[in-house]
Design a binder for these strands. Sequence first.
DNA 1: TCGCTTTTAATGTATATACATAAAATGAAG
DNA 2: CTTCATTTTATGTATATACATTAAAAGCGA
Lengths: 239, 239
Amino acid sequence: MKIALHERIRQDFEGRILSGELAPGDRLPIEQDIMADYGCARMTVNKALSALLAAGLIERRKKAGTFVARPKVHSMILDVPDIAAQVRERGQDYGFRALAHAVRQPLAGMEEERLLAGEGALMQVDGLHLANGVPLCVEYRLVSVAAVPDIVEADLHNMAPGTWLLQHVPWTEAETRISAVPAGEGEALHLQLPVGTACLSVERWTWRGAERITYVRQIFPGDAYDMLARFGPSTAAVR
Amino acid sequence: MKIALHERIRQDFEGRILSGELAPGDRLPIEQDIMADYGCARMTVNKALSALLAAGLIERRKKAGTFVARPKVHSMILDVPDIAAQVRERGQDYGFRALAHAVRQPLAGMEEERLLAGEGALMQVDGLHLANGVPLCVEYRLVSVAAVPDIVEADLHNMAPGTWLLQHVPWTEAETRISAVPAGEGEALHLQLPVGTACLSVERWTWRGAERITYVRQIFPGDAYDMLARFGPSTAAVR
DNA sequence: TCGCTTTTAATGTATATACATAAAATGAAG
DNA sequence: CTTCATTTTATGTATATACATTAAAAGCGA
């Protein structure tokens, strides 16, 4: 008996819901009954059900009771680890080669760049992620110098700016766009692919609160990289 | 004062962490001190901190204390709504046109198909998702008849099998793989694209408990469809 | 200084209790 | 039969308390 009682209760109901024994719309026993079943206090039951509520598995209405939720939008959790960490996890040797590295003003007319820069300048870092010396991904990145002044001092020739940022400007929020694009001349050259090869494009805007931190565009050969995601009602428990 | 005290405490610390005031690795006050600050019981503080723990914002170690978590893997929530719902949300007219529709045995040698079928047969449904009559996506789907017997009776000529499944087989878990592929001859024909055009491929295996439900492969023109995802530490609150 | 044991300070779990809140169910008045 | 007030019931929040668990820190002997 290493697992806590409230956790066991939670798992029991999660299992019954996932297995379909308890279908959406079905009513769960009231806290008093569950508490009698397990021979515990109501607070313990409440803790278990609160976790299921937070995970979106159930809905609760006062007086009416507790019901299995009807899944509407299946949101899934996409793990987006640092590329360096990901490569090393596969047992490969990771490397980063900078292609361009400059501090500049936002280009006139580029509203996105101006918003990112704020009152300050932009740092542009383009580079290649390498796995065992083989190019895995081309990356184009812009960082707001106003938001992250330390970036100009950082040595980014061998370290990906994303890795550096992750360690220095954590807990940001982000928006990611994934699409498929044909390899342009630059990508074709760096990734050693024919022009027009289907590639995966991952664009990400990152900010902290209202302040914009960075924009990055990564191009992967389509067959060399998959985004893998798992989802389910137990998303909260994944971590 | 409509919001609960434990919720207010949770939000306060979430805000301090997001703003950077509390950086990763920083130590939070011990429960006793927080409890004194807010003039409440320890259980109330504990509930607030438990929520932050579940959200991955903090780490807690006995005797040592509570610390702001160092974000390693940024997990982000990818909303994967039903394509039909998504199209209608954009104010467009949704349609589905079946291209193939058959019940068959798993192909010999295809281990994946045999696993999906289990003891029974497979239902294969290929079709086109249309937005305002324009092909948006080609879909190849296999459904386990053993797991979802009702599927053979369903009228899937105008309704996407995914939509039908979502309504009849809820609370499933899934794994999704996103990659970029060149359009094959079939996709080129149906999506009215040149062969080789960069397309987004979304593959998904779905199961309930140990039972496999369905496998689907969707091919989108790369420039016509983006997967959009937002993430941040407050993922748990998104629901 | 090293390695071992003991102490101690923090979180983790659970209980019993109390009152608040919201909404379904009931019942009374018209 | 309808409408509105009342009661009832299930969840929501909060408290005070107790003991378990764990790992850091302190103490101590060789």
